[in-house]
């Protein structure tokens, strides 16, 4: 895993953003309360936090689906008040696989975003073909989406975003409704895109195993960033995480348990290999 490149100018900057959901009559509770965040081109960032911590609200600010009540969000240095640019640059895949597919045929759905951008027909065709190849769904191009598995539907959604040539892909709990196999297929594609196509990846997730694979983790609580750093750094703060009703991934907890029993586990071990090596080496 690469460290977040800090010298490059950020792709998305979030500056002191406040957001209050308009409530019927009274003043709503703030969902975001003064949030600062930079997202670098090509980095893989996980945003975690308990329910109601503002994760999804933040995600919707990244491509101007929501506009901040105060503060500003810039995509590629520009103010996304003219939202269309931001929405082309920052693609989003949502939680429910069924509620984001518009068309009754896979390839038509992948084309939807490009059609909205007003691209010429031949260009759309080429982009759709490529996007379907990248997510490995060429075979299912003419299928109706309701015959697809959850994981395949999310891959269709990713392809639809990819065809718009974004610079950042936001997965807003995109794997939470999927079975383990589906989760795996979606995450493999997302990480591959981040690695090979230098697409910035923002994972809004409850799954700590997914977050552990990111370059950087940001922990939200009550609309603020309360903790951030590399996965190893963040997961080392177990007590703080627990107070936020979060738990480090199982492997981290296992590593800690082994360390308590005297096994020489390297600090910040997030994968299975260092644990195995430590066990073989013995206490």
């Amino acid at each position: 895993m690469r460290a977040a490149p800090s010298t490059v100018s950020p792709l998305i900057t979030v500056r002191d953003v406040h957001f209050v959901y308009p409530a019927g009559g009274g003043v709503g509770t703030p969902a975001l309360a003064g949030l600062d965040l930079d997202i670098a081109p090509g980095e893989c960032l996980a945003i975690i936090g308990g329910n109601g911590s503002g994760k999804s609200t933040l995600a919707k600010h990244l491509n101007a689906l929501l506009l901040p009540t105060a503060g500003e969000v810039r995509v590629d240095g520009r103010d996304p008040e003219g939202a269309w640019l931001a929405r082309q640059r920052v693609g989003m895949v949502f939680e429910h696989p069924d509620n984001q597919i518009v068309a009754a045929i896979v390839e038509e759905d992948v084309a939807f975003g490009c059609e909205n951008l007003g691209l010429p027909s031949a260009e759309i065709r080429a982009r759709v073909d490529r996007a379907l190849r990248v997510v490995g769904l060429e075979q299912l191009r003419r299928h109706p989406p309701h015959q697809l598995s959850g994981g395949q539907k999310q891959r269709v959604a990713i392809a639809g975003v990819l065809a718009m040539r974004p610079r950042c892909l936001v997965l807003d709990e995109a794997t939470s409704m999927l079975d383990p196999l589906g989760q795996q297929e979606v995450m493999e594609i997302a990480f591959r895109l981040c690695r090979d196509e230098s697409l910035a990846l923002v994972l809004i997730t409850h799954a700590m195993e997914e977050a552990a694979r990111a370059d950087r983790i940001v922990v939200l609580a009550q609309g603020r960033i309360v903790l951030q750093g590399s996965p190893a750094e963040v997961f080392a703060r177990e007590d703080e995480l627990r107070r936020l009703r979060l738990e480090p991934p199982e492997l981290v907890r296992l590593g800690r348990a082994l360390a308590r029993d005297g096994v020489a586990v390297p600090p910040g071990a997030l994968t299975i290999d260092p644990l195995v090596e430590a066990l073989i080496a013995g206490p």
């Binding site: 038509e108 759309i124 718009m164």
Partner: peptide, 27 residues
């Protein structure tokens, strides 16, 4: 209704803004 709501957001996220300036893949 819940689906319709979610779908509207998803469509906006993909730059949907009605029929103007929109092109089609299949001519």
């Amino acid at each position: 209704f819940r689906r319709a709501d979610a779908l509207a957001v998803a469509m906006e996220a993909r730059c949907y803004r009605g029929g103007e300036h929109r092109t089609r893949m299949h001519v």
